[in-house]
Design a protein around this nucleic acid. Structure first.
Lengths: 254, 254
DNA sequence: TTCCATGTGTGCGCCAGCGCCCAGACACTG
DNA sequence: CAGTGTCTGGGCGCTGGCGCACACATGGAA
């Protein structure tokens, strides 16, 4: 994988945000694992066996539909976790989780996670906020998918991947992107060609390189920035209350 | 309104599901209000002042987008509540909440709700499950909006409204439906005409009557049934654990 | 009774994305 | 070095939904 380019031990941001004591205890209950490219971690409506906190790996979440259609509705990198629905008292998730980029992650069994959750109010609080961010992002995806063209949505997805891959180049095929965006592969070919012609990306047989990050952001719809700033504002470290936070967001949005 | 057709005091199902003691305490902290048609209850990213538990009223949730586009992503009737994001420690919601059908509801201030929440583990549990159902439904909406045609999605929305209106006739204009489904008004005209020609509904100047409920269900996409059974299975009364529940759902889905 | 706001029906040109199919380019493997 | 699988490009006809513009019906208010 391309992960050799990265810092050796980037931490998971959810875990990092915990108070030191909780964090140490939590990490002690984790085991390090290597996420393997293209591996399925969670099937819809199957029992969740482990939760994952990627440090450099990257997991994509898709909502399947009867038939062969599906739609990507989120990514989990070192800013998030897989298995958040356990915090709602459920044993499963409606989403399909697939490793989009190999790399290290922290893993914990469902049972252990539940136990840790009851022990740490800080963790509960952190994950509630993460859950809110995810919900908002899913809703945003719904609107974005409805109203924005493939090219913008592609730029969007590439940017999200870029953020989490910690590298300018990564492995991702048009076929895969098509499933994520819920379009035909040819639709991706067309959009990707356009982006490449504008010098924003380079790709070749499943290997994509981001050439012009700023240009790509300009090509994406506003949804990307919206999601980014939601995360930044909600998950900001250690603010004891979210009071007035929403006001700021609103002010910024106008 | 048409609510005179209904039983005078249908209860809110979330509240009903609480253990008797918690329920009585909770209701004592509520005040009865009348939801007024077309009233906005929550603006995106504004502070939530009250939570609502409709008993017969009906609230629609939409995700706005910069520009004038928006997309309906949920309905709240006596099966749910408005303001669920408070349970995640947030003060606001990304969604716009509008009264789609007038009628009575229980209301509680944000402050009181937070207090009640800490007092009743049963309430916490109930609302976590409700939150899960909502999340899954939003994701379902995203996929449905992407892949299904307007006619099916219209049938879908009408059925959801029908379930919560407790009446075969209700007030809803094509203009409004267009905003909910994220299409042009003309698109609704076309789809609604088709449904009417098939004898499934009758409508006239904002007044819709469901004529053939079964036929309408056949005209809707499977998403309607999916959402319905998700609610039924997750929110089923008083099962102490969701263990094996997911297995059942999965079995049923195959 | 007249008038106006609201709600609905229709026509027309346009385009993004679909479904299907085939062709070319490259890369791994034996 | 041949063979096979993977990835990308492109053509063609189709259709669902868009944007715009206009006509009409109805019901309530002046």
């Amino acid at each position: 994988m391309l992960l050799s380019l990265q810092a050796p031990s980037a931490a998971n941001r959810l875990i990092s945000a915990l108070p030191r004591k909780d964090r140490q205890h939590f990490l002690a209950a984790c085991e390090p694992v290597q996420l393997v490219f293209a591996e399925t971690l969670v099937e819809p409506n199957e029992r969740i066996r482990h939760v994952y906190f990627p440090t450099q790996g990257l997991i994509s979440l898709t909502m399947p539909m009867y038939g062969s259609d599906s739609l990507g509705i989120g990514l989990v990198g070192n800013e998030g976790m897989l298995g958040i629905s356990l915090t709602l008292g459920m044993n499963g998730s409606p989403l399909h989780a697939l490793v989009q980029g190999g790399g290290p992650a922290w893993r914990m069994s469902t049972r252990t996670f539940r136990r840790e959750l009851t022990k740490s109010p800080a963790l509960q609080r952190e994950l509630k906020h993460y859950l809110y961010v995810m919900m908002k992002q899913i809703a945003q995806t719904a609107v974005c998918t409805r109203f924005h063209i493939v090219e913008a949505r592609l730029a969007n997805w590439l940017l999200m991947t870029h953020d989490r891959a910690h590298a300018d180049a990564f492995h991702i095929t048009q076929e895969f992107l098509a499933r994520m965006l819920g379009v035909r592969r040819v639709g991706i070919t067309k959009a990707a060609t356009a982006l490449q012609n504008r010098g924003l990306i380079h790709y070749r047989r499943g290997h994509i390189t981001i050439l012009d990050r700023d240009g790509l952001e300009a090509a994406a719809c506003q949804c990307y920035q919206t999601n980014l700033s939601t995360y930044a504002q909600i998950m900001s470290p250690r603010s004891d209350t979210r009071t007035d936070r929403m006001q700021q967001i609103k002010a910024k949005a106008e």
